[in-house]
Nucleic acid binder design. Structure first.
Lengths: 280, 280
DNA sequence: TTGACAACTGACTAATTAGTCATTATTATA
DNA sequence: TATAATAATGACTAATTAGTCAGTTGTCAA
């Protein structure tokens, strides 16, 4: 295991126990059994480590969820699967999930807050898309409330699971939330969250630029090992520099890369970016 | 205004902006326009200030809510009033509410965590009492889930109100949540949060004692029917009173009982307890 | 065996923190 | 006004922090 990976894993444990601020670089290096200097060979600063951790987990989580929702068949299992994988992920990555719950609205580091907020918005958008797919126009007036209720369910039950050593039957949990969600979707009549409120939240939208996209793509390209992966990324890069491929070809290339762990994020970003720009 | 009050007000602002840890006593005294020494005339330590703030607001909030619930007439307005006053309070004391959301699961100060947890338990109990009053035995199986859903609603809509400068119609919000709550109360059939999970929550943070464990064991023993079940429980009881069995024997006994429905709980508790104590 | 290079170390700096205390200012009382 | 009591100050300590860097160790090719 590389030093960088070792540091990230041990730091994650400490952050989950204590939070970012109260965890010192000293503590991290002690738990790793390395010196302080060695830490700064892997990361420029403590903040860079934190950002790296957040990016690693959030991008994975968001892109997984989004892919799941995008390819969702509208059937009885869809919602169940959504909840199940959601809680399964937060159980699997419980250390990170704990940090999320603890630090998500902290403002001692404004770059961090923006990051959390951006990821939260992405998740919110994914949930909105899901509710639209599942329940369609029937819930036009109440869909934003439904999104918030789903977020509330996830938040409060995650807390229950993460912070209390309770033996958990995730299938039962998912089932019970599906029932609740369906009830609310089909019978709620009084809305509170309007489209305006919902959109106001996302005003500070930091739209991703072509250059930023290229940067992420370049990084994935460097990490790529398989020929198919490399070739697809390379073609997508050319398309990004000068659009030339038809939508179907692009979609095919995205499908090629999206199952490689280190390509999930760029696949998600590209899909969003290209969809957005084709609408313009 | 007394010094103590001044300090508490200004500190509250800073804590809401930055959190407890990153706010220094220096900053607080500067914003108050007093010296550092003066601070320590009013409070023995920074922690004492934090505890004072928490106690002041939480006790007020909890006792208000509890009074409201205790004197609740079971009518259509009860639930509405509950939600309305809840959000009204969090809007009025928005600084403190923000701190609550930010710090509630922080563990850098264990006294604080216990405090938050204690107050949270009190609120949970109040909400449980309310649901029992409002919906009675109809929701016996699902009432703990209802409590969690209500907590989820409060949490996620509070966040929306507090952290996004959104103009809010509290009456509309309360109405919409009343509708949702009534729907869930009357039609949900699949429970997730069992009585056991609900009660475990109250044990986990503060370590379970030998006596509490014996109590639960005794209860399972009374309900036991099979000889194997009875004998195993009985042996485990003796081991609990005076440790004498080797780990392998204990594990075997636990395996004996863990599949009887009414022993699952005590098996889980015992395993946790014994593992914890053997590590020491 | 030697030399070159990268990986690593931990004592160090400079900044910040909570909390202290000798000193000074203010106020109340006689 | 004089004295005592109280309130307030801010320079100070001791501890902790993130981050640095001169020096040590390990590795591998010639």
């Amino acid at each position: 295991m590389g030093k960088k990976q070792l540091i990230m894993e041990r730091a994650l444990e400490l952050f989950a126990e204590q939070g970012f601020e109260p965890t010192s670089v000293q503590q991290i290096t002690e738990r790793c059994g390395i010196s302080k200097g060695a830490f700064y060979l892997s990361f420029k600063s403590k903040d860079e480590l934190i950002v790296a951790l957040i990016d690693q987990f959030m991008s994975q989580m968001i892109s997984n969820t989004d892919y799941q929702v995008t390819n969702m068949q509208n059937n009885e299992l869809s919602l169940y699967n959504f909840y199940f994988t959601m809680f399964q992920a937060s159980q699997k990555h419980s250390n990170f999930a704990k940090i999320l719950m603890k630090e998500q609205s902290h403002s001692f580091n404004s770059e961090l807050v923006l990051k959390f907020h951006d990821y939260d918005k992405l998740l919110e958008k994914t949930i909105l898309t899901m509710t639209e797919k599942l329940f369609g126009e029937r819930i036009e007036n109440t869909k934003y409330d439904l999104v918030y209720c789903i977020k509330g369910f996830i938040s409060i039950y995650s807390e229950l699971i993460l912070f209390n050593n309770v033996p958990v039957d995730l299938e039962q949990l998912a089932q019970s939330l599906v029932e609740k969600t369906n009830l609310l979707a089909s019978q709620v009549t009084i809305p509170f969250v309007t489209k305006e409120i919902f959109q106001l939240r996302r005003l500070s939208k930091t739209e991703i630029t072509n250059d930023q996209l290229l940067e992420v793509l370049e990084q994935s390209l460097n990490e790529a090992e398989e020929p198919l992966e490399q070739e697809s990324l390379s073609l997508l890069k050319q398309h990004l520099l000068e659009p030339s491929l038809s939508p179907a070809l692009v979609e095919g290339l995205l499908k090629n890369i999206q199952d490689y762990p280190n390509c999930k994020w760029i696949a998600f970003l590209l899909r969003n970016y290209l969809k957005l720009n084709s609408i313009k």
